[in-house]
Design a protein around this nucleic acid. Structure first.
Lengths: 154, 154
DNA sequence: TCATAGTGCTTGCAATCGGAAGTACTATGG
DNA sequence: CCATAGTACTTCCGATTGCAAGCACTATGA
């Protein structure tokens, strides 16, 4: 029933483990982020991208690229976040097509709090029998794997 | 605008890199899998789980656990795959509640082909400046991170 | 035995997503 | 100047998802 092993198994297994790891970690993180801060994971990601951007703002298409989602999704994400006061809308004088999503003070506070929760969750993940160097190695290998692709934070 | 660094940054960055890596890799893989084999990534995962299961079959709830999705999703995934002949439905004599999803011969062929494509894609991902040992290290660290969680393949 | 609790599956419902189409605006090149 | 092409955003539509509810069946224990 099992397939025949081959040279490509190492890469294949690495990819499978990566897919699974994301599922497991996202399950673990998303619940607490929602209950504690009322944020979906990707909403937190949106805020973090704004946080690191010049003037704390990005266009919707740029956010879509970084979040690996469509422009329509970003539009629909931003609307309720505006109503909550986490972001605001700002148009550009030079180009009337642009509608920046801008991080507000309330959004800054919210993402700072949410990041603390995320950092704590991340620490918990590596709490048992992980050494600092191992975590750095994992992080570095992952970063290298997706080097050049859009969406990097920090 | 950037947050204050702390001891937890290593874990945090590793988690962020993991989330991003999954996005990038899934984008890259899903398209080819769909165009070449007409399969969504999670459909391929479903078939692979069946492939490794005793008698080539699993109940819907067990599949849901392994795929990190809900039972209703598995039900709705299985229906069109039955019509394509990739899986069939089989009830249990001992327990009339159980409705196994069974891998058919056509499903076996399909997943064998799809796995070859996946393996090739995985190889491409690591093609440039990756050594076998580094890929194994990444795979091992990821496996260790999610040890004990459901959904492991092979 | 038989009421109660638990499990497996399906369906209804609301929420979410991506792509296509539409609108508005900007850039390009004669 | 102006036609054409390209970009940014929004909205509509179909598809997908999880949760809650419902149904059918099994296990428990008095």
């Amino acid at each position: 029933m099992a397939h025949i092993p081959s040279m490509t198994d190492t890469s294949f297994n690495a990819v499978m483990n990566l897919l699974r790891a994301r599922d497991v970690i996202e399950e673990r993180i998303a619940g607490e982020l929602a209950s504690v801060h009322g944020l979906m994971l990707k909403e937190a990601m949106l805020l973090m991208h704004l946080e690191g951007a010049p003037l704390g703002r990005l266009t919707r298409v740029e956010l879509a690229k970084r979040l690996h989602s469509s422009a329509s999704t970003v539009t629909r994400m931003a609307t309720p976040m505006e109503k909550l006061g986490l972001v605001s809308r700002q148009s550009d004088d030079r180009d009337a097509r642009l509608a920046f999503v801008v991080l507000t003070k309330a959004g800054q506070i919210k993402i700072t709090e949410a990041r603390a929760t995320l950092a704590k969750q991340a620490d918990d993940l590596f709490q048992d029998r992980w050494q600092e160097g191992e975590i750095e190695a994992l992080s570095g290998l992952l970063a290298r794997l997706v080097a050049g692709a859009p969406g990097r934070l920090a």
